[in-house]
Simulated scan of single mutants.
Amino acid sequence: MNQVRIGIVGMGNMGWGHAKYLTEGKVKGAVLTAVSDLFESKRRQAKETFGEGLATFESAEELFASGLVDAVLVATPHYDHPECAILAFRHGLHVLVEKPAGVYTKQVRLMNEAAAASGKVFSIMYNQRTNPIYMKLRDLIASGELGEIRRTNWIITNWYRSQSYYNSGGWRATWAGEGGGVLINQDPHQLDLWQWTIGMMPTRVRAFCHFGKYRDIEVEDDVTAYVEYANGATGVFVTTTGEAPGTNRFEVTGDRGKIVIEDGKLTFWRLRVSEPEFNATYTGGFGQPECWKCDIPIHGTSPEHMGITQNFVDAILNGAPLIAPGEEGIKGLTLSNAMHLSTWTDNWVDLPIDEELYYELLQERIRASTFKKPEASGDKVLSVGGTFNS
């Protein structure tokens, strides 16, 4: 194989964006051959925009069985990512799934198992992993420059969304339509980067989610979470869609200093000797380790979505290592599920979470949701071909 034929499932905002750069030839070794969407208007628009040679299908299963694609890019509503991916694996296709991996870890675990059994390439659209600033942070931590992690703190409150935004679609910010709020819609990249850059997951979580605090919505729009790690380190994650102006500041402290990412800059306050060494040898009463402020140069630009898609294609054609293996999508989702579960039970949540309890409590909220999910003819879910985010 010297070219990968790609099909896109779901022609909403994200699916449309992926189709655009694929048809413009911006991913070497890839060609867009087919798309699927439940809505005829979307299929017609795709042909008009990307050419009559593009095959269109009403359902994902029809696309998968067509023989026209080697790989699929899943850009359906959140709930449907795992089911659609599992169906694609059963048809022997490689899969690149949009973030988040799903809504609850129970379904994502099944997707991961299907991927492993298929032997196909499986990736997730964590495009922020291609951002040089987060790549540099990960490198500094992995190389030992920061020493042992002691504290993480991410304030990500620049997700401002008005009531008008939420009113633009009845599925938005509902348990039945999206499966969550700021954690599942806006924050998947940060939740992934939080654990990916430092190289470890928490052991337990205590969170306080506020549902409809600033807007007339069902789901969380304000969250403060505290986590603990196996080595004794702690972390805080603060996020909301209701503040203006917002902040995006990621701070990681180790025993050799502190790194802060803010306003597109990475600053390393580096200790000349580690804090434990200074503490063990210093005898002068008041004092602290000598500290150097280092503005770390960041080289290159982020290829974003195209970069992940190119890597996915390279993995299929040449066996290139994946930047964002699909199986890792469950990690960030575990964090958001744990934050919900901690709030719902008003208690600490140990990781791995109780997946059955989370599923049960989520179903209660789905049944009470104001949004009633439309049914595809004969299908139990909208997922295999549909879009909400038109």
Rank of each mutant, 00 (worst) to 15 (best):
residue 71 A to R: 14
residue 150 R to G: 07
residue 200 M to S: 13
residue 127 N to Y: 15
residue 130 T to G: 04
residue 379 D to T: 01
residue 98 E to L: 06
residue 64 F to S: 09
residue 190 Q to R: 10
residue 173 A to P: 01
residue 19 A to G: 00
residue 203 T to H: 09
residue 36 S to Y: 12
residue 72 V to F: 09
residue 75 A to Y: 04
residue 212 G to R: 05
residue 89 F to K: 08
residue 131 N to Y: 13
residue 207 A to Q: 05
residue 185 N to V: 15
residue 227 V to I: 12
residue 144 G to Q: 04
residue 301 T to H: 06
residue 284 G to R: 07
residue 207 A to F: 13
residue 376 A to C: 02
residue 363 Q to F: 00
residue 229 Y to Q: 05
residue 373 K to Q: 11
residue 246 G to T: 05
residue 37 D to S: 15
residue 224 T to A: 10
residue 293 K to D: 12
residue 287 G to Q: 11
residue 127 N to P: 00
residue 361 L to R: 15
residue 298 I to C: 11
residue 267 T to K: 11
residue 116 A to G: 00
residue 323 I to E: 08
residue 14 M to A: 14
residue 136 K to I: 00
residue 67 G to K: 05
residue 319 G to V: 07
residue 193 L to A: 07
residue 17 G to W: 08
residue 145 E to I: 00
residue 106 K to A: 14
residue 382 L to Y: 14
residue 229 Y to K: 10
residue 90 R to S: 14
residue 252 V to F: 13
residue 230 A to P: 04
residue 216 D to G: 04
residue 171 W to H: 15
residue 12 G to C: 08
residue 232 G to N: 13
residue 147 G to D: 05
residue 363 Q to S: 09
residue 211 F to K: 11
residue 11 M to W: 08
residue 1 M to G: 15
residue 367 R to E: 13
residue 93 L to W: 09
residue 72 V to S: 09
residue 46 A to V: 12
residue 26 K to M: 13
residue 161 R to D: 03
residue 196 W to P: 10
residue 162 S to V: 07
residue 122 F to M: 09
residue 351 L to G: 06
residue 296 I to C: 07
residue 96 L to Y: 14
residue 85 A to H: 03
residue 367 R to I: 00
residue 222 D to Q: 11
residue 139 D to Q: 15
residue 326 G to W: 08
residue 347 N to Q: 14
residue 91 H to L: 02
residue 371 F to E: 13
residue 14 M to T: 08
residue 29 G to R: 07
residue 56 T to G: 02
residue 89 F to P: 06
residue 342 S to M: 06
residue 146 L to K: 10
residue 32 L to T: 10
residue 309 T to H: 08
residue 81 H to P: 05
residue 267 T to V: 15
residue 208 F to N: 11
residue 374 P to T: 09
residue 26 K to F: 02
residue 180 G to D: 07
residue 335 L to A: 10
residue 216 D to H: 10
residue 326 G to C: 11
residue 345 T to I: 11
residue 347 N to F: 04
residue 321 P to G: 01
residue 11 M to K: 06
residue 49 T to F: 08
residue 341 L to E: 03
residue 139 D to M: 14
residue 264 G to A: 06
residue 59 S to C: 01
residue 300 G to V: 08
residue 59 S to W: 11
residue 272 R to M: 02
residue 156 I to D: 15
residue 47 K to A: 00
residue 224 T to D: 12
residue 321 P to H: 01
residue 137 L to V: 12
residue 261 I to V: 15
residue 70 D to C: 12
residue 249 R to A: 12
residue 199 G to V: 08
residue 60 A to H: 07
residue 280 A to P: 03
residue 235 G to I: 10
residue 316 I to M: 09
residue 43 R to Y: 12
residue 376 A to W: 02
residue 143 S to I: 01
residue 19 A to F: 05
residue 1 M to L: 10
residue 335 L to D: 03
residue 133 I to G: 07
residue 149 I to Y: 10
residue 389 N to Q: 11
residue 186 Q to S: 05
residue 31 V to E: 14
residue 183 L to Y: 02
residue 197 T to Y: 08
residue 320 A to Q: 12
residue 69 V to H: 01
residue 225 A to D: 03
residue 350 D to V: 03
residue 127 N to K: 11
residue 184 I to H: 03
residue 93 L to S: 13
residue 10 G to T: 04
residue 108 V to P: 09
residue 19 A to I: 04
residue 49 T to H: 12
residue 110 L to E: 15
residue 116 A to C: 03
residue 355 E to K: 13
residue 263 D to P: 00
residue 61 E to Q: 10
residue 358 Y to K: 03
residue 331 K to V: 01
residue 212 G to A: 12
residue 70 D to E: 11
